[in-house]
Amino acid sequence: MVDTHSMNVISLTLDDPHAEALAQFCKRSFLDRVRIFSASETEARQMVDAIHELRHALAEAGFAPR
């Protein structure tokens, strides 16, 4: 199976308080919480996957809430 999705690099500059707040948001964002913002179950799962990637990037930058 060939992956037809392209990958994107997105840069973001945040001060520490905003980066920490975003990391907390990512930590607390679960499938049940994003479903209300999505048009389908597939989209909700994609949102959670994207939030997971964002959380990982924030952790690599030193913002990893416990």
Results as ranks from 00 to 15, higher is better:
46 Q>W: 08
40 S>N: 10
31 L>Q: 05
17 P>N: 05
8 N>D: 05
27 K>G: 03
59 A>I: 01
57 A>W: 07
58 L>F: 04
66 R>T: 11
3 D>E: 14
5 H>P: 01
22 L>P: 05
13 T>R: 15
6 S>I: 08
7 M>A: 13
16 D>Y: 06
6 S>M: 13
26 C>W: 06
41 E>S: 15
23 A>K: 02
41 E>W: 08
23 A>N: 06
40 S>P: 04
15 D>A: 07
48 V>N: 03
31 L>N: 11
45 R>I: 00
33 R>F: 03
5 H>V: 06
32 D>N: 12
21 A>F: 04
58 L>M: 05
56 H>T: 10
45 R>M: 05
50 A>F: 11
48 V>W: 03
34 V>F: 08
65 P>A: 02
4 T>F: 12
38 S>W: 02
46 Q>A: 12
32 D>H: 15
54 L>D: 02
16 D>N: 05
59 A>K: 11
49 D>A: 15
19 A>T: 04
34 V>P: 01
40 S>T: 13
56 H>W: 10
37 F>L: 14
3 D>Y: 07
21 A>L: 13
50 A>N: 07
40 S>D: 02
60 E>W: 06
32 D>R: 14
65 P>K: 00
39 A>G: 13
61 A>G: 06
31 L>W: 08
50 A>L: 14
8 N>A: 14
45 R>L: 02
22 L>F: 00
54 L>F: 09
50 A>I: 11
39 A>E: 03
51 I>T: 02
18 H>P: 01
37 F>E: 06
23 A>T: 04
56 H>D: 01
60 E>N: 13
53 E>S: 13
32 D>K: 10
39 A>P: 00
61 A>T: 03
10 I>S: 07
41 E>K: 13
25 F>A: 14
1 M>G: 14
13 T>D: 14
33 R>Y: 04
38 S>Q: 08
52 H>E: 14
1 M>P: 05
19 A>P: 01
59 A>E: 00
37 F>D: 06
36 I>R: 09
4 T>S: 11
49 D>E: 15
12 L>A: 10
50 A>G: 05
12 L>K: 12
9 V>E: 09
60 E>K: 14
6 S>Q: 12
27 K>W: 07
65 P>V: 02
41 E>N: 13
10 I>C: 09
26 C>V: 05
63 F>K: 02
16 D>C: 03
46 Q>Y: 12
54 L>G: 02
7 M>G: 08
30 F>A: 11
14 L>R: 08
9 V>D: 10
46 Q>I: 03
28 R>S: 12
55 R>K: 15
16 D>E: 15
11 S>W: 12
19 A>D: 07
13 T>K: 14
23 A>F: 00
64 A>I: 00
13 T>P: 03
57 A>S: 09
53 E>H: 09
60 E>C: 09
7 M>N: 09
9 V>Q: 09
29 S>P: 01
5 H>S: 12
24 Q>F: 08
59 A>T: 03
14 L>A: 07
